[in-house]
Design a protein around this nucleic acid. Structure first.
Lengths: 172, 172
DNA sequence: GACTAATTGCGACTTTGTCGCACTTCCGGC
DNA sequence: GCCGGAAGTGCGACAAAGTCGCAATTAGTC
């Protein structure tokens, strides 16, 4: 329950550097985010806040999250389908890509120096200045391929996850 | 205006193989898609259909498009921000990745065998069976970097595009 | 041509996200 | 410590993107 330290500090200095205010809403947003799993959407942050008894309005979260991204506390990703806005914590974690299992919904994080190099080469070749990038490979994970696990189809979404809160797969 | 041939044929055999029907709605959806640019959303398909005087309901398009994806006629991508569902034609075009310019909004298609190889290696290493993948690098294109073009910020979205219909950038 | 299950059209509804605006709170100055 | 003004919040209304149930229609089959 303590560890918000770093993120909070980062937020504060970011806000200061931009002449923005460190407010209750923004602090609570960070707290709520801390309580989220590996990948989450804004609705999850909202839910986490509510679960912790923090009173912040949805609109405030929507307004705070982009700041957290700018501050480097969060990263915007589209780990799953890529439809709704999704985020992951970005502090103290190096860049990684995602292998997304279409069966159990799990998302495996991987990273490859060779890949990074190749991307850099591609960019250079096109005179493109990269800011960030995102690779998502969809397919079937080793566990599901060997059929050793309950499928997402018909049944609970397979509890084993990168660390997500509880239920990402729900949609309506 | 003629060329729907291939896609239509593909759709037909796909539907047949799945015991689904080749209906008016699905045919019109393909036609409308043909009229779209390189990257488009479902609303664009709808608009294209309307523009061609084809009467298809939005819901029908929403139902048809996933089939077109399954049939390999379309590919789902999140070329731009990655928020709303976006698609591109997938027929007869080999896989490519996207360099997305944050300034002019253009999306440059690139492909790299080395990258594909590295991805395959990564998957193998994790026992992951890839179905498809998507790499998106965001940053600034050569044109914008040299400052030679009107910026998206304040002003029309830079007409030079990968071939998109007309107005993707609009939101609300 | 008749039959039947798949599909469509339609509108209502949900979800996700944004906006304007009055009220509150932060924070630098005194 | 208190003040003042601007930044930020809460709120509800709204917009866009998607989905759903259902009656009417239609593609295929016999």
């Amino acid at each position: 329950m303590k560890g918000s330290g770093e993120a909070a500090k980062r937020l504060e200095s970011f806000l200061r550097s931009r002449g923005l205010r460190l407010t209750r809403g923004r602090r609570l947003a960070v707290e709520a985010v801390e309580a989220c799993g590996a990948h989450f959407g804004i609705e999850d942050v909202d839910a986490a806040a509510r679960a912790k008894g923090l009173r912040v309005h949805r609109a405030t979260i929507y307004r705070a999250v982009p700041l957290l991204v700018e501050a480097g506390i969060l990263r915007k990703v589209s780990a799953s389908g890529g439809d709704r806005g999704e985020y992951e914590k970005g502090l103290g974690r190096e860049h990684h890509d995602h292998l997304l299992c279409l069966d159990c919904g799990r998302s495996i994080e991987v990273s490859s120096a060779a890949m990074e190099r190749e991307q850099a080469r591609l960019c250079a070749q096109h005179g493109f200045l990269a800011v960030d990038h995102q690779l998502r490979i969809r397919g079937y994970c080793a566990v599901c391929r060997s059929g050793g696990r309950p499928r997402a189809t018909s049944g609970p979404p397979a509890p084993i996850a990168t660390g997500a809160p509880a239920g990402r797969p729900r949609r309506r």
